[in-house]
Simulated scan of single mutants.
Amino acid sequence: MRTLLLALMLALALAACSSKDEAAQLPVPDEATAAESAAPADGQPISSITIKETIPDGPVGRMQLTNGSTLEIDGLEKMGNYWIYLTGKLNGRSSTVVSLTRFRDLMNWQSIVFKDPHNFTITNKRGKEWVFEDANLYLGTDKHDAYSFFVLDDRYDRTLTEVKKSEVANISFSTK
């Protein structure tokens, strides 16, 4: 009797599973395909809502060079969608990519301390550290050997400057 009841419950479970909607198991199209299929025929965007990011006026950080001098970072140049982009081994374990698209996320970092251009430690405002090895960090430019950012010159004009990665000891970020 118990065996018969168990067999009936198993048959009922199999029947329930086999009648489940198969459409849910179809692959989901990627975002580009979904956006193309959902876009109106006239090519206008679906939504006119744009997210406005608040970027503070004035210095956003400092860069200390290996020769001891300091540069005041007055602003950052966005690289396409990213404020900063880095790839490398995180904490000696796995290959990691960090690409920050929001300025406020970058301002949650306290500093980046460089052992050399490809080995550095990032510390956030809460004191958590991420140690990157065999890494590439891009800030303001996609060049492999330089960072770029805005500084104020002698006449207080905002100018884009470039610094070789090998000359950078640390970068600290500040918030008002």
Score class of each variant (00 low, 15 high):
residue 3 T to W: 05
residue 5 L to T: 08
residue 9 M to A: 11
residue 9 M to Q: 03
residue 11 A to M: 08
residue 13 A to W: 00
residue 16 A to F: 06
residue 16 A to R: 05
residue 17 C to M: 10
residue 26 L to E: 10
residue 27 P to I: 00
residue 28 V to T: 10
residue 29 P to Q: 04
residue 30 D to P: 03
residue 31 E to V: 08
residue 33 T to D: 08
residue 35 A to C: 02
residue 35 A to N: 05
residue 40 P to K: 11
residue 44 Q to I: 01
residue 44 Q to L: 09
residue 45 P to V: 06
residue 45 P to E: 03
residue 46 I to T: 05
residue 48 S to T: 14
residue 51 I to D: 06
residue 55 I to Y: 02
residue 56 P to H: 06
residue 56 P to K: 06
residue 57 D to V: 01
residue 57 D to F: 03
residue 67 N to A: 11
residue 70 T to K: 03
residue 70 T to C: 06
residue 72 E to H: 02
residue 73 I to D: 10
residue 75 G to E: 13
residue 76 L to R: 01
residue 76 L to F: 01
residue 76 L to G: 08
residue 79 M to C: 04
residue 80 G to Q: 03
residue 82 Y to N: 15
residue 83 W to C: 09
residue 85 Y to E: 14
residue 88 G to L: 06
residue 91 N to L: 10
residue 93 R to W: 14
residue 93 R to V: 14
residue 94 S to A: 12
residue 98 V to F: 11
residue 98 V to W: 02
residue 99 S to W: 00
residue 99 S to I: 03
residue 100 L to K: 08
residue 100 L to H: 02
residue 103 F to P: 13
residue 105 D to Y: 00
residue 110 Q to C: 05
residue 110 Q to A: 09
residue 112 I to V: 15
residue 113 V to G: 07
residue 114 F to Q: 13
residue 115 K to H: 13
residue 125 K to L: 13
residue 125 K to Y: 00
residue 128 K to I: 02
residue 131 V to S: 06
residue 131 V to N: 10
residue 135 A to Y: 06
residue 135 A to E: 09
residue 141 T to D: 04
residue 143 K to C: 04
residue 144 H to V: 04
residue 146 A to Q: 08
residue 147 Y to E: 05
residue 148 S to K: 09
residue 150 F to Q: 10
residue 151 V to Y: 03
residue 152 L to S: 08
residue 153 D to K: 05
residue 156 Y to S: 11
residue 157 D to F: 12
residue 160 L to G: 08
residue 162 E to S: 13
residue 165 K to T: 07
residue 170 N to A: 07
residue 171 I to W: 02
residue 172 S to I: 00
residue 175 T to I: 07
